[in-house]
Design a binder for these strands. Structure first.
Lengths: 244, 244
DNA sequence: GAGTGGTCTAGACCACCTA
DNA sequence: AGGTGGTCTAGACCACTCC
């Protein structure tokens, strides 16, 4: 059956995480479904129970699975919680929620951004940035409108890449060796404008969840100004504040 | 030395979490400090290494501790906590924003909460909770509607306190010795209902920012279910996610 | 090489839920 | 009563960091 590979170099529990993720993605495990018991998984994959639990804990922390004492482990419901304490791209975010991301490019231009954005990106006077506006889909349904300005100082030629089917963060990492480190983002809510309503396929005035801010590289330089406008009826996220 | 009590009914790893939390709070462990190694803790508290690791994982997920392979476990630095939001009361939040908070009590009753909330507060079947509904003002203008359910298991008589002019978290701390540790909160947006619009003095259908979730004590027990409904035109907040 | 955290095993018993 | 997840043990070996 589905043996794991003890010499693949990757930990057994991570391999089980991947196997379960694949089943969640393929629909073999649907929201509300009960997983095989920990003891079943242990026999199926020929690993110890602690290792099974380690894998399930990973997916539980992501909100994919829910464990209920005495009953079993279940696939999490649709509108799932997911910590945004971690900075993820839209594609990563949707995949972790078990949905398939896609994009429609609306605009892609090298332009001089508004002064406020130019300042946050620390652009020189009149220095242009790469403007990318994309409509983001999850399982084919509009989820968010995404307007990004990228500072080109570190990634000349980014405009020439395929920006629809790839994660831009992946391109930055793999082609330019740039590592995203953190972001400073504001969270707010607003009513949909005529244009936003049309693109997101909601009624004019519908509530939207807006996340706007600046993304920084690990060298401390700003690389992106991001404005993400989510449909409030389809998107929420979780935060886990602590009291210090 | 600090023996744990195997018959206290509380899991050993939770007891170690508490012990470590106490040291973090007292300053015996300061940011940047290195913890004793897992093998040391294991001997000190006479528990197995897996149990030590279980406790450390709890605090690591809260961002209190940081484990570095081959080096050791350290108290989270200020930089590490960048990605984490501080959990503040409405009063603290407004004062930090330079505004003067005030409250109008709308409802204060001991009632049986909806099943979903009862479950999150881990109430017994039919066990009542303290419902507090307050309209929150900043500089005299309505800012948020706040609906809290407090589990009374740990704070009997809370209903008799002055809940309008004091921070409830202060009361929990000073009168009951309860320490708020963390929260799990969902962030979403919605349109104002007739009632919400009236109380918050906005038009029906106006966008609102909603933060809803559960607040936990440092012993891991849920103490409060919180639903805060903010005027989107007057409130936003920031997050500082990090890329792991 | 010594010490750290990371992974893994094969058991055990407890607490909870359903029936 | 039987099955589930929750906790715990006492080992083992690996991977990483520092000296």
């Amino acid at each position: 059956m589905p043996r794991l590979d003890p010499i693949s170099g990757s930990p057994l529990y991570q391999q089980l995480v991947q196997a379960l993720r694949a089943q969640l993605r393929s629909g073999a495990l649907k929201p509300g479904d009960q997983l095989p018991s920990e003891r079943d998984l242990m026999e199926t994959y020929h690993i110890s129970r602690n290792t099974v639990r380690q894998a399930i804990e990973v997916l539980e922390h992501e909100g994919q699975l829910e464990r209920i004492h005495g009953r079993g482990t279940f696939v999490g419901s649709a509108k799932l919680k997911l910590g945004l304490m971690r900075l993820t791209s839209f594609s990563e975010d949707m995949r972790e929620r078990g949905m398939e991301p896609s994009s429609r490019l609306i605009q892609c231009d090298v332009t001089t951004p508004p002064a406020a954005i130019a300042e946050q990106l620390r652009l020189l006077d009149g220095e242009p940035a790469l403007l990318i506006e994309r409509l983001r889909y999850a399982d084919g349904i509009p989820m968010a409108l995404n307007i990004s300005h990228f500072s080109q100082a570190y990634c000349p030629g980014l405009a020439g890449e395929d920006l629809v089917n790839q994660s831009i963060y992946d391109i930055l990492e793999k082609k330019y060796g740039l590592h995203i480190a953190r972001a400073e983002q504001a969270v707010r809510s607003a009513a949909a404008s005529v244009n936003e309503a049309m693109l997101l396929e909601v009624r004019y005035g519908s509530p939207l969840l807006i996340i706007e801010g600046v993304v920084y590289l690990d060298n401390g330089m700003p690389i992106e100004h991001l404005r993400s406008i989510y449909r409030a009826d389809r998107y929420e996220f979780t935060i886990n504040p602590i009291r210090s």
